[in-house]
């Protein structure tokens, strides 16, 4: 297959909005009278329509970072802005996909997705159309009336993605969205997410611990380290979308990042460090 730069794919809408700017983010938890630095001086600028992957070891604060951007946690230092506007609290402009699908077991797939539109001031018909369109977008047509327990793990996660996109957010935050899926389903959904992103064009920031996934999907891969959580470096992936998994460029980058991530002196877990008491 020939590579086509994604900006030239007819379906891909390049958006003017959805620029995320993180400046000097500092976050700490107080843990039994000790301060636990989770994020320290974290700064990152994400362009409108860009796909940024963030990888790092567990405990490097990447999930916390996503909660801050989503507005679920307001206690931090620094500024987070979307299109120059400082974020405060949650907003329908910022969608979030969790690692577990978090669909409500007592609602049908349709109702689960419609829940996200509860407070949108649009007509009933417009809502129904948005729901139907997004069910089609994630390839779940025909399952509108299914309950979550009737769906496979992969299907449930697709539904969760549809729910987060139905508000047409400027930026979609994905917190290890495929972490709970089996390897085959994961590969399949990565391809699907790439297709959706190309069709939908919003900014995406994805947290993952799967380096291959980060490289396959991201325009840019941000590598983090723990204690405290910070960026060690950023890798630009100058390959057009959709990508070929077998690309030697991806493999070389993967080896480099893995080498860096695995070459960390133990203990890497901040809690363990704290208990051992060798925290400066």
């Amino acid at each position: 297959m020939d590579y086509v730069p994604h900006s030239q794919i007819p379906g891909h809408k390049i958006k003017q909005t959805g620029a995320v700017s993180l400046k000097g983010i500092k976050k700490q938890f107080n843990f039994k009278d000790r301060e636990l630095k989770v994020l320290s001086e974290f700064s990152l600028d994400v362009q409108p329509g860009e796909f940024v992957s963030i990888v790092g070891p567990s405990g490097c604060g990447k999930s916390t970072l996503l909660r801050l951007i989503a507005g679920l946690d307001d206690t931090y230092d620094g500024t987070i802005a979307l299109d120059g506007q400082r974020v405060a609290g949650t907003s329908l402009e910022r969608g979030l996909v969790f690692q577990d699908h978090r669909l409500f077991p007592w609602m049908t797939l349709e109702d689960n997705i419609a829940l996200a539109l509860t407070n949108r001031q649009i007509s009933k018909d417009a809502k129904a159309k948005l729901v139907a369109d997004h069910i089609a977008l994630v390839g779940l047509k025909g399952f509108e009336k299914a309950f979550p327990h009737q769906l496979s793990g992969g299907m449930a996660q697709r539904a969760a993605i549809a729910r987060s996109l139905v508000n047409e957010p400027k930026v979609l935050l994905l917190d290890e969205p495929f972490g709970a899926l089996d390897a085959l389903t994961r590969v399949h959904l990565q391809g699907e997410l790439q297709r959706i992103w190309l069709a939908q064009g919003s900014t995406m920031i994805m947290i993952t611990h799967d380096v291959e996934e980060a490289l396959y999907l991201g325009d840019r891969v941000v590598v983090m380290q723990a204690n405290p959580g910070r960026i060690t470096h950023t890798v630009d992936v100058n390959l057009p979308h959709p990508r070929d998994r077998a690309s030697p460029v991806l493999h070389k980058l993967k080896d480099e990042i893995l080498a860096e991530l695995t070459n960390v002196p133990e203990p890497s877990n901040p809690i363990v460090r704290l208990i051992k008491g060798d925290d400066q």
Binding site: L92, G95, R102, F104, L115, T118
Partner: peptide
């Protein structure tokens, strides 16, 4: 984790109770 979903979609207190907490 279920209440987080309610916050992400900006449900009001009553909406959160009626659509999520009560059925749960």
């Amino acid at each position: 984790r279920l209440l987080d979903v309610a916050r992400v979609y900006r449900l009001s207190g009553w909406q959160t109770f009626w659509r999520i907490q009560w059925p749960a």
